[in-house]
Design a binder for these strands. Structure first.
Lengths: 139, 139
DNA sequence: GATATAATGATAATCGTTATCATTATATTT
DNA sequence: AAATATAATGATAACGATTATCATTATATC
């Protein structure tokens, strides 16, 4: 089964990006090149694609869901100041260590381990710089 | 500054629980003993308490926010089948390992590390048992 | 080319959460 | 203890994100 023109468009457009847009952001940007695309189609296909495992759906405090075109195992830094989300790619030894811990913990409570999410909350380097010039205080 | 009767009630009630109720669940249960409590008060105080660091606010895709009365460092297993959330307490060596990794990764992208979240997605032991009796297939 | 199936896009509906605001409770001052 | 100021409550409106509905359009199959 082939993807519809719109589904293909949404997937490709997301894969090209490094940020982690909300459905709305993506819709807005797609609208520029494809004015007749509908917001429902964007939501619908993002949901489908994440169910199919082609993309990742991320959720953080208060914010709208974010989508990630990179399905390789990696972590995220969520900046407490600007709310941007950054990819971080652990070394293979670290990925292994994280997996080992997840496996042991799952086993401990008798669960079947399917996946892991390692999120770091912090202040990104540009927000660090910005607050530095304001006197070094972090919000 | 002392807590209001309602705020105290909400905090204590949450601390007594092992599950991770949504605001709505908590409201429903509190309503039994305190019929005149309002849903707005529950949301309001849960928000305040989590800002004060007295409780944790957890977010997972699609679902309403969950609240956790246990602020000690621990991880969560989210069951893909029943959607329940279980606490898992890593050994101190593991907590240290997780922290080390988070520190290194934060440093790698020049960020200031504030906190870490280690979530495991899986099938909890009761859902494993249930699916076992239906033929061993996991949904 | 005709018919069946599937996906779209506009929009209504839903759900979780926050904002508003008049009322009630608590604290402070006299 | 009464009067006043401050803060929190609870009902409900408003909001933002997402999903459901459904007539229309596109794609696939006969």
């Amino acid at each position: 089964m082939k993807y519809s023109r719109q589904k293909e468009l949404i997937l490709n457009s997301l894969k090209e990006r490094r940020d982690h847009p909300t459905a709305d952001m993506l819709y807005f940007d797609l609208k520029a090149g494809t004015p007749d695309i509908g917001i429902a189609t964007v939501y619908r296909n993002l949901s489908k694609l994440s169910e199919e495992g082609k993309i990742l759906r991320l959720h953080f405090a208060g914010e709208a869901d974010r989508f990630d075109g990179n399905t390789a195992p990696h972590s995220h830094l969520v900046c407490s100041v600007c709310k941007n989300i950054y990819d971080i790619f652990p070394m293979s030894a670290e990925t292994e260590a994280l997996n080992d811990i997840a496996n042991r913990l799952s086993q401990e409570i008798g669960a079947e381990h399917l996946g892991t999410e390692f999120n770091i909350r912090g202040v990104c380097c540009s927000c660090k710089r910005a607050s530095g010039s304001l006197g070094g205080e972090v919000l």
